[in-house]
């Protein structure tokens, strides 16, 4: 189940999230530009996501949220 979600219009496609992902499943898609004119980050393998949120920790634009069911 997908845990990380990228806010399509908030993302600036900087790619810092991808450097932090331990599963190497975050990358920048080159199909669709957002309102600001950036290609954005996506999770390319939702099932592999472990919800560690390191992508979100690295994101300079608070564009990534990670849902783990809110349980510590």
């Amino acid at each position: 189940m997908a845990k990380m979600k990228v806010d399509f219009d908030a993302c600036k496609g900087c790619g810092l999230c991808a450097t932090a992902c331990p599963k190497k499943i975050v990358s920048i898609q080159h199909d669709k530009l957002n309102k600001k004119g950036y290609y954005t980050a996506v999770c390319i393998d939702n099932d592999a996501c472990i919800g560690c949120a390191l992508c979100a920790v690295m994101c300079p634009d608070c564009a990534i949220t990670v849902k783990n069911g809110g349980v510590d």
Binding site: K12, G13, G15, C52, D61, C62, N68
Partner: peptide, 28 residues
């Protein structure tokens, strides 16, 4: 693991910083 969302102490205004500028991380 807890959810990861934007902290309350930040407003909803998107940062104007350039892509990849680390100001945004420090703000958060």
């Amino acid at each position: 693991m807890p959810d990861f969302t934007k902290p309350h102490a930040l407003t909803d205004v998107p940062f104007h910083y350039c892509p990849g500028c680390t100001h945004g991380i420090v703000h958060r």
